[in-house]
Structures are given as structure tokens and as C-alpha cells.
Design a protein around this nucleic acid. Sequence first.
DNA 1: GGGAATTGATATC
DNA 2: TTCCAGATATCAATTCCC
Length: 590
Amino acid sequence: MNEPIFHYYGNKAGVEGADQIKQVIDDATRGSEYYKRQQEKRQQVLQKVNKMQMELENYNKNEQKKKEIKEIIQNKVKEFQINTDRIWAHFDMDMFYVACELLDKPELKDKPVAVGQSIVSTANYVARKYGVRSAMPTFVAKKLCPDIIFIPCHFEKYKSVSNIFMTILKKYDDNLESMGLDEANLDLTQYINNSQEDPAILCENIRKDIFLATQLTASCGIGPNKMIAKLASEINKPNGMHVVQQTPTAVLNFLEKLPVRKIPGIGNITEQILTGLNFNTCKDVRDRADQLYIIFTPKTFEYIFYSCWGVARNYHVEFEDQHSISCQRTFSSISTQREFEDKIDYIADKLAEEMQSEEKVGNHLTLIIKTAKFEIRNKSLQLNQYTNQAKQISIYGKQLLKIMQLDEPIRLLGLKMSSLANEKQIQKQSISTYFKRQYEKSVGQENIASVKGSKSHQISEDNDSINKERLQQQELSKPDIISDDEASSISNQILSGVNSKSHQSQAQQQQYLQKQQAQPKSFRCPICNKEIDCKGNNTVLNKHIDRCITQQNVIVEQSDESNRNFSEQKKKVSSKIESKAQKSLNFFKK
DNA sequence: GGGAATTGATATC
DNA sequence: TTCCAGATATCAATTCCC
């Protein structure tokens, strides 16, 4: 049981005396709940490795199957080619957060410094010599290096330096892909083709430019694709550069002895599995790819296999919309229902704030908790409408809490909203729906679509008690913004958004709009209830409604005692930059 | 049986 | 002195539902 939980990388720049460091970390953490949980996980991984080992033993006895799989692998190797006709560069600012802080505090340059609060975000190379590294709890860092100086994060500062960094790089590839504030990948092919410059000289000059503009150093890697460039950038860190020549042989040689853990996407667990099965380097993977094929799922196999052969994406992908927005907080353990609910209120408010500032609504909510024993659990719920309102999020969150049946203390609670949509788009759709219904009423038709009839309205009339509870809760959730009056019902749809799946098809909308144009008439405003003579002009109507929505928003909040607290809290300025800074792109997604 | 939804695990910065 | 974050993504396994 004395086996270390984390594999420590003694080869990381600045680290010395890996054994002693391991010992200090071990002594500092042994016995904690966190440590116990890590041990459990470690055991699970070992069991998995054992199972895989047995699978491999069986495989090795089966000559027929071996022949079959080896043939598949040979074909795969024949099929692909290591494409070397593009030139990529990866730039990475050295110890970025700390470096930014040291600009303001140059007197700390030769002292051990780290940025972070409870966890180390970045440490300078002085601190790294003591074994301090990213993602390490600060109390461990202090044990390793009692003189270490901690500086809290100032994302605004990092963002402005990052802007300068990115601006310089964009001259060479306007579509560059940035991963966080301090890293970027550039496809230099076009620039090099035009300028005929030597890539290495060009990148040296870019590094100089970065230093002149920011007073900070960046490391760089050059290679034929994104992955190779990133891997190369780590070779001569800090303030260095490495070039992998644009030939398949150079790529294969570069990867030959590279530990599998270096491949982006292979983390702590996958490394444990791979090394447990004696796949230590990329060459091991290449040599025994048939065994890899047996033990991993197809997707995982393909990713590891191709990466070890140096085959990775060498073109830009289109930026995808964000899929989820979440908010979570760690605190000292709580265990009463009241405390859980208070936390949900708080987190729901933060999440709503974030969603509103991003102008997003969502209709899938997930409650995430971490027990005092560091176990993570979650439950999710498909909502019957889009929302970004704190009160509604909180009600759904509490519903999820009930479903989860928590019976132990927790140290973290979070809420995540997914199935996101653009708030304004959803509002527009609600307005269209409203007018369509008005029109249908006026011509004596039945409603074609209604909010409650939506496909994703998962609360059906069955006997499921949870669903019944949900339904009751949703009914409960309405009165704070919905009255019996249809006008305010519609205003609620507009304010909180309506499930887009419930809306009529584009064709139906088109048809409706055409009819509306053919038969211009006056409408009663859904919000102020005034008769509006639109004279067939939708702009007049829209303007009126926009005005009313804004006013109504204020009225609704002021009229509700409990909502008042929320609106007050909403006024607090949120630090948006922090969350932005953490957003990362999936680097090697094909 | 198969696709969709839910939950858990893993990774990254 | 205290004692291991937060946001986001993808993939895999499991469960649900038609």
C-alpha cells in the first residue's frame, strides 16, 4: 500500500531529488480522505490491468486470432501515411501566470513563487526545483518548500498579456487555435509558402517579438501537425525551441522513445494502464499494436495507435458552440438538508448570472456533488422549457437533490446547464409562437403547437412518483412569473424561454407568417394587454413588445419578495474573465 | 435490438 | 492554522424506451 498514487515526473524541468519529493508528498497526504479515495481508485485501476492482462494471455495463446489481428494492424499501417506537407508551430508561454505576476513584482524573481489559492495553478522554476507543480494542493507545496510565496490569481492581468501574445501570433495564422490563455497552435504553411522563410528562423523571430512586447518568454515547437508541434514545444522548455523536420522518418524518430504519457489525451489513469501492460514508449505501442487492439475500445485504440505513429490532425476545425455552462463550489463539509438547499440557491444564482451574461438558456440540468469522501455523483433532468432564471434553476436543482437521496456529508456542489440555446433566438421563437396562436384564435383554429405538448416534456401521465413530483414542482415553479392570464403566461415564456422542440416547423412558421401578412390586423400585446394597430408592420409590433418585455422583467422581479434577493445579487459584478480563462478547446478532436 | 438518455470516468488548462 | 479547484469536453458503460 506504500505505492505512490501519482507517478512523479523527475524529468520535469526544474525538479530535483524525485525520491525525497515523493516521500514528502506521501507523508503530507497519508491518512486523509482524499488519499484513501485515491488508493481505492488505484486498486480499481490495478484490477482493470489484471483483467486486461488475462485477456492478453488468452489472446497470445490463440494463434489464429493473433494472425487475424496482426493482419488488421498491418493493413492499418499500410493505409495511413504520415502527412508532412504542412508546417505547424505551437507556442507556449513559460510559467504564464507566475510570469505575469513577476512583471509587477520583479524582486520575487529568484524566490519560489506560485499562483493559486487552495491549489497551485502555476509555479516558477525556483519553486519547481522543490517539487512544487501545477494542480498540487497548496499545503503540500508549503511542506515541500516552506518559503514559497503564494499570489492569488489575477485573470484580468493574464488576459491582457494573452491578448498581446495572440495578436502577435495572428499575423502568421489568423485562424490560430488557442488553448487557454498561454498556448496557441498555428498552421504556418501558407505564410511560409508565401514568404519562403525558414520556419525555425521565423519562429525564433516570433519568440523575440513576444518577448519585446510582453517581457515574457515563450517556448515553441515546430512539426508537421498539431500534436507533433505541441510535443516539440516541451522539449526545450523554458525559453527554447525544438524543430521536428518535415519527414516521416524525423517524426517516427522523435516519437520513438517518447513516454506514452506525453501524448495529449493520455493522462494519469491511461498511463497507469499502459505502463501496467508494459507499453512505456510510443515504440512499444507501435510494436505491439495488436495487443492494444485487443484490450481497448475501437476509439481509444485508434487514438493511441495513430498518435504513436505521429498521425494527428493537420488542419483547423471550425469553432463549435459551447455545450454547457456550469458552476461548482467546494466548501467545508455540510450535511443537513437546509445547508444543501442553501448551497443550491447560491450556485443556481451564480449559474443564472453566468448564463444571462452569456445570453444563453438551457433545458438540461445536472446536479453534481462530491461527498466528504471525495466520491463524485451526479443526476440530471430534462427540463420542459429553456431557462436561465435562478429561481427556476434552484427549484429543479432541489428536485434533483431529492432524487439523489443524499445521506452523507458533501464538500462540493455544482449545477451544470446543457442543451444550450441562444436566449434571443428562443425569445424570438416564443414571440412567433404567441402570434401564431393569436392568429389561429382569430381564425378559429386549434393551436398547432403548445409549450406543454413538447416532445422533450418528459413528465408524462404515468405513475412514476418521481415524474409526479417533478410535475408538481414545475407547477409550483410557475406562479412566480405566470398568472392565469394568458398575457402573463406568454410573457413568462418570453422571459424564461420556451422549449424549441415544441415549436412548429420552419415551414409552418413560414406559412403562418404569410397568412399573417395577407390578413393584417391589430393585436393585443401579450404583456401590457393594449391593442396595437400594427398595420401589417411587424417591426412596430416587435418594438412595442421589446419595450414591454424589458418593463415586465422589472415588474415581475419587483413584485416577488423572494425574487428581490435574486435581483439584488444579480447586480453584483461577476468575474467573467476567470471562467473564460478556463475554457479550453479539445485539442486533438478530429 | 437499437437508439437516446443518463451516469461515470478521464483529460486538459 | 487550515489540509486536494473549477470549467468544460469526450468517451464508455449502463439504463430506458420504442
